Amino acid sequence: FSITQFVRNLGLEHLMDIFEREQITLRVLVEMGHKELKEIGINAYGHREKLIKGVERLI
């Protein structure tokens, strides 16, 4: 299971460039909250919320 699959499953594949540029893996994403996601350029609250909720389902 990769970050690419995870992001695609959430319908947020347009954010993949950010994850690749910042070298974010699923392991790193698990540790990130709204503040960190915003810092790397994910400005939409809804997108950040989707990512965080998606990660919570993985754990």
Rank of each mutant, 00 (worst) to 15 (best):
F1K: 07
F1C: 15
F1G: 09
F1I: 13
F1E: 09
F1P: 10
F1T: 10
F1Q: 10
S2W: 08
S2I: 08
S2L: 08
S2R: 07
S2H: 09
S2N: 13
S2D: 14
S2G: 13
I3V: 09
I3Y: 03
I3F: 11
I3C: 04
I3A: 05
T4Q: 14
T4H: 14
T4Y: 14
T4A: 14
Q5C: 15
Q5S: 11
Q5V: 11
Q5T: 12
Q5P: 04
Q5N: 10
F6R: 00
F6Q: 00
F6K: 00
F6C: 04
F6H: 00
F6G: 01
F6E: 00
F6D: 00
V7C: 11
V7A: 06
V7F: 07
V7W: 03
V7P: 00
R8Y: 14
R8M: 11
R8L: 09
R8H: 11
N9L: 14
N9K: 12
N9D: 15
N9W: 13
N9C: 15
N9G: 12
N9Q: 13
L10S: 02
L10K: 01
L10I: 08
L10Y: 03
L10F: 03
L10D: 00
G11R: 07
G11N: 08
G11F: 04
G11L: 03
G11E: 06
G11V: 03
G11T: 03
G11H: 08
G11Y: 05
L12A: 01
L12V: 03
L12Q: 01
L12E: 01
L12D: 00
L12Y: 02
L12G: 02
E13M: 11
E13V: 10
E13L: 11
E13S: 12
E13Y: 11
H14Q: 13
H14V: 12
H14F: 15
H14K: 09
H14W: 08
H14E: 13
L15N: 00
L15H: 03
L15K: 00
L15Y: 10
L15E: 00
L15T: 02
M16E: 08
M16F: 06
M16L: 14
M16Q: 09
M16H: 06
M16I: 14
M16K: 08
M16P: 01
D17W: 15
D17Q: 12
D17C: 11
D17L: 11
D17T: 12
I18N: 04
I18P: 01
I18V: 08
I18K: 05
I18S: 03
I18L: 09
I18F: 06
F19A: 01
F19K: 00
F19I: 06
F19V: 04
F19S: 02
F19E: 00
F19T: 00
E20T: 13
E20Y: 11
E20W: 09
E20C: 09
E20G: 06
E20V: 14
R21K: 11
R21T: 07
R21D: 05
R21E: 06
R21P: 04
R21S: 07
R21F: 06
R21C: 05
R21V: 05
R21L: 06
E22R: 12
E22Y: 13
E22H: 15
E22I: 06
E22Q: 12
E22S: 09
Q23T: 07
Q23G: 14
Q23K: 14
Q23V: 07
Q23H: 14
Q23I: 05
I24D: 02
I24N: 02
I24K: 01
I24F: 04
I24V: 10
I24H: 02
I24L: 08
T25C: 05
T25I: 04
T25A: 05
T25N: 08
T25E: 06
L26V: 07
L26F: 12
L26I: 09
L26E: 02
L26W: 14
R27D: 11
R27T: 12
R27M: 10
R27W: 10
R27H: 12
R27S: 13
V28T: 13
V28G: 11
V28N: 13
V28W: 07
V28Q: 15
V28Y: 07
L29T: 03
L29C: 03
L29Y: 03
L29A: 02
L29H: 04
L29P: 00
L29V: 04
L29Q: 01
V30R: 13
V30N: 06
V30Q: 12
V30D: 02
V30F: 13
V30T: 12
V30I: 14
E31Q: 15
E31K: 15
E31G: 15
E31Y: 15
E31H: 15
E31N: 15
M32L: 08
M32I: 04
M32K: 02
M32Q: 02
M32P: 01
M32D: 00
M32Y: 07
M32E: 00
G33W: 03
G33S: 07
G33C: 05
G33D: 06
G33Q: 05
H34E: 04
H34S: 03
H34I: 03
H34T: 02
H34D: 05
H34R: 04
H34W: 05
K35V: 08
K35Q: 10
K35M: 07
E36N: 04
E36H: 05
E36C: 05
E36G: 06
E36T: 04
E36R: 06
E36A: 06
E36D: 08
E36K: 07
E36Y: 04
L37D: 01
L37P: 00
L37M: 08
L37R: 03
L37Q: 02
L37K: 00
K38H: 08
K38N: 07
K38A: 10
K38P: 01
K38W: 07
K38D: 06
K38E: 14
K38R: 10
E39G: 10
E39V: 07
E39T: 09
E39A: 14
E39N: 11
E39H: 10
I40C: 04
I40P: 00
I40V: 09
I40S: 03
G41Q: 03
G41W: 05
G41T: 03
G41M: 04
G41R: 03
I42E: 01
I42F: 04
I42D: 02
I42Q: 02
N43H: 13
N43P: 07
N43V: 14
N43E: 14
N43W: 12
N43A: 12
A44K: 13
A44Q: 15
A44G: 11
A44E: 15
A44H: 15
A44T: 11
Y45T: 07
Y45A: 10
Y45C: 07
Y45H: 12
Y45N: 07
Y45Q: 09
Y45K: 10
Y45D: 06
Y45W: 14
Y45P: 09
G46H: 15
G46M: 13
G46L: 13
G46T: 14
H47V: 15
H47P: 08
H47C: 12
H47T: 15
R48Q: 04
R48P: 02
R48T: 03
R48M: 06
R48N: 02
R48K: 02
R48I: 07
R48A: 05
E49F: 08
E49Y: 10
E49V: 14
E49A: 12
E49R: 11
E49Q: 12
E49I: 13
K50Q: 10
K50V: 09
K50E: 08
K50P: 01
K50L: 12
K50T: 12
K50G: 05
K50H: 06
K50A: 14
L51W: 02
L51N: 01
L51M: 05
L51C: 04
L51F: 04
L51P: 00
I52V: 06
I52S: 00
I52E: 01
I52H: 00
I52Y: 02
I52M: 09
K53L: 10
K53H: 10
K53S: 09
K53V: 08
K53W: 10
K53Q: 11
K53E: 08
K53N: 09
G54D: 04
G54Q: 05
G54H: 06
G54R: 04
V55I: 15
V55H: 03
V55Q: 02
V55E: 00
V55P: 01
E56W: 08
E56Y: 08
E56N: 10
E56S: 11
E56T: 10
E56Q: 15
E56M: 13
R57M: 13
R57P: 03
R57I: 11
R57A: 15
R57C: 12
R57H: 11
R57L: 12
R57N: 14
L58E: 05
L58W: 13
L58F: 12
L58R: 03
L58M: 12
I59S: 08
I59C: 14
I59G: 08
I59T: 11
I59D: 06
